[in-house]
């Protein structure tokens, strides 16, 4: 997987890995397999990123033009963008023409792994969205949302990660939240 950068919606991710990282029947070896397709996609993304960067850099507004021999705000990023684009193209050629890199330092993707990752991401994004509201009012009191949603986040994560014991699901979220609230909220006085 993983040929995408952050601009691509995460929903598109799971389609790809099966082709490249699908569990090999041979077994025994738990390492990821080299993949030419993966290398080509990665290099193409690098080309796109560097091109985008270069285009954006050339549009930077300058408050003042620099004097001769002086650096303006565009000079350095333009150099970087040009260099980056050159190397990204070079890498693309390498990816197209040479044997793909070994990936024996990486482990193979497992069934359910992508789901586990996306579920965690979704949970954290939801958590942050609610946390941003900060407080809610009930019975004439302002309640700090953080202390209510943090145990819920942890509960959700534990469920995704396969915890099933009753004690784990109750105690861990509560104890962790209490610890964080005491250390950060009360002791360090960070506005949670």
């Amino acid at each position: 997987m993983s040929h995408q950068n952050d601009v691509v919606p995460p929903g598109a991710v799971p389609a790809l890995p099966d082709a490249d990282d699908a569990p090999t029947p041979s077994g025994g070896h738990d390492a990821a397999q080299p993949s030419r397709k993966l290398e080509i996609i990665a290099a193409s993304v690098a080309v796109v990123v560097m091109t985008t960067f270069l285009v954006l850099v050339l549009q930077i507004d300058l408050r003042r033009e620099a004097d001769a021999g002086q650096m303006d705000a565009r000079f350095w990023p333009t150099v970087l963008g040009g260099l980056g684009l050159t190397i990204a193209l070079w890498r693309l050629i390498v990816a197209l023409t040479q044997t793909p890199d070994e990936r024996d330092d990486l482990e193979r993707l497992q069934v359910g792994g992508v789901t586990r990752l996306l579920a965690s991401l979704a949970l954290v994004v939801g958590y942050m969205a609610i946390w941003e509201l900060r407080t809610f009012v009930m019975f004439g009191y302002n309640f700090n949302l953080f202390v209510f949603i943090t145990p819920l986040l942890l509960l959700g994560l534990l469920l995704i990660y396969g915890a099933r014991s009753w004690k784990a699901l109750v105690f861990f979220p509560l104890v962790s939240t209490a610890f964080i609230y005491l250390l950060f909220g009360m002791l360090l006085r960070i506005p949670l």
């Binding site: 993983s2 040929h3 950068n5 990282d21 990821a32 290398e39 996609i41 990486l106 990752l117």
Partner: peptide, 8 residues
């Protein structure tokens, strides 16, 4: 993680 999977 995307970088890691692609060897960057």
């Amino acid at each position: 993680v995307l970088m890691k999977r692609t060897g960057f």
